[in-house]
């Protein structure tokens, strides 16, 4: 389906509203329940869902090691900043260097894992990806890379590079805008994919890979493309997020919680749909935020049963269900 202009415009408007609110809150302070933290969470989860959707949603392969990309992004950015500080270079060198490291590391990981693991189907692929994630984590600890289990301290170098004023901006609004840019980039890439041959190839792969190949789809190429794109976006998200943490420890960076959240976001909104991650990111982010006050850390207890229910009852997710049960929406919602 070629996506309707209205649909794309509507999504972009939603993005603009959230970003606008974030900036507004920064200037005038919280608007009732809408605080900077809430909007940060929304941006993060929308970005996470939108980025992971490109792989899980569009191909139907479950990457249980997705957090490895975010971890490499966090480490890539943080170690870039630390290196710039140690070399006595100005701060923005560190950020540029960090971005280059993030993209290099995540594409390398994606190409290596994609080249190997994407030859495996379903269960075997899932097992391989979990192993890659844990393997990487223990490699970082075992060989003492990036300070290993002692943790890579970022806040110190950041404060010295940018001053405490600059650091606090970087840790809040600037990193939020970066997170936002990742979400937007992921949205734009999704639109491009869905509107071109790539999207059709990925849909065919998701529905029936063998049939897709017979119909002329170079399945390996498109799977690796989706995996790498989604992986680099995950890395960029990790890089943007790294400004918010004081130090990075392997168990936190490679925490499977992020993978769980990413899966929930994609499946709840509707795998492979364009609007799904916005819907589920908003739901999940707000619930996590509002629960944090009353029952901190309870969001998974709420969402894990919802995830199981969605898979069993409505595997097409919220947006997918709209498309399935209200035929008129199929023409314009993707």
């Amino acid at each position: 389906m070629t996506l309707s202009r209205t649909h794309i415009l509507a999504l972009l408007t939603l993005y603009a509203i959230i970003l606008g609110l974030r900036i507004l809150v920064e200037v005038v302070g919280p608007l009732g329940p809408i605080t900077g933290q809430l909007l940060t969470l929304l941006a993060f989860y929308i970005a996470l869902g939108q980025a992971f959707n490109i792989f899980l949603g569009m191909t139907g392969y479950v990457d249980f090691g997705y957090v490895a990309f975010m971890a490499l992004g966090m480490y890539g950015m943080a170690s870039g900043v630390v290196r710039a500080y140690e070399a006595g270079l100005p701060g923005y060198y560190g950020i540029v260097f960090g971005l280059i490291q993030t993209i290099t590391l995540t594409s390398l990981l994606a190409l290596i894992v994609g080249g190997i693991a994407l030859r495996l189907r379903g269960a075997y692929f899932a097992i391989a990806t979990i192993s890659v994630n844990e393997g990487l984590r223990y490699l970082v600890e075992g060989l003492d890379i990036w300070e290993g289990s002692r943790g890579l301290i970022v806040s110190g170098p950041l404060i010295r590079l940018f001053g405490s004023e600059g650091f606090s901006l970087l840790a809040t609004i600037i990193s939020d805008i970066m997170v936002f840019s990742v979400a937007l980039l992921a949205l734009v890439i999704s639109i491009v994919f869905l509107n071109t041959r790539i999207g059709y190839a990925l849909k065919a792969i998701r529905e029936d890979e063998d049939a897709a190949r017979v119909m002329g789809v170079n399945t390996t190429m498109y799977k690796v493309l989706a995996f790498t794109t989604s992986g680099i976006l995950g890395g960029l998200l990790g890089a943007a997020w790294s400004f918010k943490v004081a130090s990075i420890y392997p168990p936190d960076a490679f925490n499977i919680l992020y993978t769980i959240e990413a899966i929930i976001l994609v499946m709840l909104g509707g795998a492979g749909t364009l609007a799904g991650p916005i819907v589920s990111g908003t739901l999940y982010g707000s619930l996590k935020y509002f629960l944090a006050g009353i029952l901190p850390g309870f969001q998974l207890l709420v969402f894990a049963p919802i995830l199981v229910a969605v898979i069993v009852v409505a595997p097409e997710g919220i947006v997918g269900a709209l498309r399935a049960y209200i035929p008129a929406t199929r023409r314009f919602i993707a």
Partner: peptide
């Protein structure tokens, strides 16, 4: 070999 979750046209 239908692709069950996409439209006939797609």
């Amino acid at each position: 070999r239908p692709f069950p979750n996409i439209t006939v046209r797609e």
